[in-house]
Amino acid sequence: MSLEAFKSRVLPVKDKLYRFALRFLRDEDEARDVVQEVLIKVWNKREEMDQLENMEAWCMRITRNVSLDRLKSKHNKYTTPIEEGFDVSGGDRETPYRSTELSDTMKTIGSFIQALPEKQRQVIQLRDVEGYSYQEISEIMEIDMNQVKVNLFRARKAVKENLLNINAYGLG
């Protein structure tokens, strides 16, 4: 792979790699380090790149593996607001009350997602935040597509039930 091919195929996904790493690590500096490490690994393997069909999924898989390695080595504890990955603006109808309500809801949803089992958390991040297809998630996570669908279904169901329970009891 030439430098031009690297710039056109790999660098455009750098922001997605960063957001994905940040979801794992909850530390902006660590996430930037992971992305840098991933880009170096991709560059060093550039001779093999022409054989890949989906460069983005391959880069995401490397990002996932490097992030998990860092987590295992450091046992980081963290919290980060989920609204960083979502547009919670209400447009012209935005009021301070509405803005606060949306922000609180997103924080609540974020805490529900953080409480999910690891696979469910990763699948919901890749599908609902990053917008990857089931096939791409299957490749990134190296799991069967049925497992992707089951984990996504269970994750969405758990978040929905938790949100409904809070709203039903007036705690939200």
Rank of each mutant, 00 (worst) to 15 (best):
G110T: 01
G110I: 03
G110F: 01
S111R: 15
S111M: 11
S111F: 01
S111T: 12
S111P: 06
F112I: 05
F112P: 00
F112W: 04
I113L: 11
I113V: 12
Q114E: 14
Q114R: 13
A115S: 13
A115C: 12
A115L: 02
A115G: 06
A115Y: 04
P117V: 04
P117I: 05
P117N: 08
P117Y: 03
P117D: 11
P117M: 01
E118W: 06
E118T: 11
E118K: 09
K119T: 06
K119H: 02
K119F: 04
Q120N: 10
Q120F: 03
R121F: 01
R121T: 01
Q122R: 10
Q122H: 13
Q122K: 02
Q122F: 11
V123E: 05
V123N: 04
V123M: 10
V123Y: 10
V123R: 00
I124C: 07
I124H: 07
I124M: 10
I124F: 03
I124G: 02
I124E: 09
Q125E: 14
Q125R: 10
L126C: 10
R127P: 08
R127G: 10
D128E: 14
D128L: 08
D128N: 15
D128G: 09
V129K: 07
V129Q: 04
V129H: 14
E130C: 09
E130W: 14
E130F: 15
E130H: 14
E130R: 09
G131Y: 11
G131A: 06
G131Q: 07
Y132L: 15
Y132E: 15
Y132F: 15
Y132M: 14
Y132K: 13
Y132C: 14
Y132V: 08
S133H: 09
S133F: 06
S133E: 13
S133D: 05
Y134F: 14
Y134S: 03
Y134C: 07
Q135R: 10
E136A: 11
E136N: 12
E136P: 06
I137F: 02
I137Q: 07
I137C: 04
I137Y: 03
I137W: 01
I137T: 08
S138K: 03
S138A: 06
E139I: 05
E139P: 05
E139Q: 11
E139W: 06
E139V: 02
I140R: 05
I140N: 03
M141F: 11
M141D: 00
E142Q: 05
E142A: 11
E142N: 08
I143V: 12
I143F: 02
I143A: 01
I143N: 04
I143L: 02
D144M: 03
D144K: 09
